[in-house]
Computed example of a mutant assay.
Amino acid sequence: MDEIDVKILRCLKNNARENASVISEKVSMSVSAVIERIRKLENSGMIRQHTTIIDQVKAGKDVTSFISISLEHPKYIECFTNFVKDNKEILECHYITGDFDFMLKVVTNSTQTLERVLNQIKSVNGVKMTKTIVILSTVKNEYSVDPEEILK
């Protein structure tokens, strides 16, 4: 990784569809050199994927919440994680430290839908306790690390 890679990552972070010729102008390299560097970043795993971010409000998904989950016993982890993987309204699931075992990010179209998802979660074998926080507004929402921080 060098400064050129960081500049390329910054360009792709801002717009994953940005053309290699546009990036080449921004980093003062040939198009073929930029394409080769992008391939190396992909092959090394530094770039995991190129994706489209859908505006959840425009998609009718107005309610975002974080749900903390506590399980009765670690033997229920597999059952719980299988449920999570099958639920499209759960966007993120993190195994965490502290008073709870998992933290979920859930996006639904209404509080009624959130209630349904919460009741489904509570029905999963081994779920002992939940705590739900509804997001009123979001001040910052980054989807990946800042490329400038990589070389520090």
Rank of each mutant, 00 (worst) to 15 (best):
residue 68 S to M: 13
residue 49 Q to I: 02
residue 32 S to E: 11
residue 1 M to F: 09
residue 136 L to C: 10
residue 57 V to R: 12
residue 148 E to F: 11
residue 51 T to M: 15
residue 32 S to P: 00
residue 22 V to M: 11
residue 31 V to K: 14
residue 64 T to R: 14
residue 116 R to G: 00
residue 146 D to K: 12
residue 24 S to I: 06
residue 144 S to F: 09
residue 70 S to T: 08
residue 21 S to G: 02
residue 106 V to M: 07
residue 37 R to K: 11
residue 10 R to S: 15
residue 53 I to W: 08
residue 125 N to V: 05
residue 95 Y to S: 10
residue 101 D to S: 05
residue 81 T to P: 02
residue 143 Y to H: 12
residue 80 F to Y: 10
residue 54 I to S: 02
residue 109 N to G: 05
residue 68 S to R: 12
residue 145 V to G: 14
residue 148 E to L: 14
residue 18 E to W: 10
residue 115 E to K: 13
residue 19 N to S: 08
residue 77 I to E: 15
residue 88 K to G: 01
residue 133 I to C: 13
residue 43 N to D: 15
residue 39 R to M: 07
residue 66 F to V: 03
residue 21 S to V: 10
residue 97 T to F: 14
residue 94 H to N: 09
residue 129 M to N: 15
residue 99 D to A: 15
residue 100 F to S: 09
residue 4 I to R: 11
residue 56 Q to W: 12
residue 108 T to Y: 06
residue 88 K to W: 06
residue 68 S to C: 10
residue 79 C to D: 14
residue 148 E to A: 15
residue 102 F to D: 01
residue 118 L to P: 00
residue 81 T to E: 15
residue 139 V to N: 04
residue 11 C to N: 09
residue 84 V to P: 06
residue 12 L to G: 06
residue 75 K to G: 01
residue 80 F to N: 03
residue 16 A to V: 11
residue 102 F to R: 01
residue 118 L to I: 04
residue 56 Q to H: 12
residue 58 K to V: 02
residue 83 F to D: 04
residue 109 N to T: 00
residue 100 F to A: 07
residue 110 S to A: 05
residue 104 L to H: 02
residue 24 S to R: 07
residue 18 E to H: 01
residue 27 V to S: 06
residue 151 L to G: 01
residue 69 I to E: 04
residue 36 E to T: 11
residue 36 E to G: 10
residue 53 I to D: 01
residue 72 E to I: 07
residue 147 P to R: 06
residue 13 K to H: 03
residue 32 S to L: 12
residue 28 S to P: 00
residue 133 I to H: 15
residue 118 L to A: 07
residue 63 V to M: 07
residue 103 M to I: 11
residue 137 S to H: 13
residue 45 G to E: 04
residue 84 V to L: 09
residue 122 K to E: 13
residue 22 V to L: 10
residue 37 R to P: 03
residue 12 L to I: 07
residue 40 K to F: 09
residue 138 T to C: 07
residue 9 L to I: 11
residue 91 L to H: 12
residue 61 K to G: 02
residue 55 D to W: 02
residue 115 E to T: 11
residue 146 D to A: 12
residue 47 I to R: 04
residue 24 S to D: 08
residue 121 I to E: 06
residue 62 D to I: 08
residue 14 N to S: 11
residue 134 V to W: 03
residue 93 C to F: 06
residue 15 N to R: 08
residue 46 M to F: 12
residue 69 I to T: 01
residue 124 V to E: 04
residue 87 N to H: 10
residue 96 I to A: 07
residue 48 R to I: 07
residue 143 Y to P: 00
residue 57 V to K: 13
residue 76 Y to M: 03
residue 35 I to L: 14
residue 9 L to S: 08
residue 25 E to Q: 14
residue 49 Q to P: 00
residue 30 S to E: 06
residue 50 H to S: 04
residue 79 C to M: 11
residue 87 N to Q: 12
residue 58 K to L: 13
residue 51 T to H: 09
residue 128 K to L: 15
residue 9 L to W: 09
residue 69 I to K: 04
residue 143 Y to I: 09
residue 15 N to Y: 04
residue 23 I to Q: 08
residue 88 K to Q: 11
residue 75 K to Y: 11
residue 9 L to E: 05
residue 145 V to Y: 14
residue 77 I to M: 14
residue 142 E to F: 08
residue 150 I to W: 13
residue 26 K to G: 05
residue 77 I to G: 01
residue 63 V to K: 05
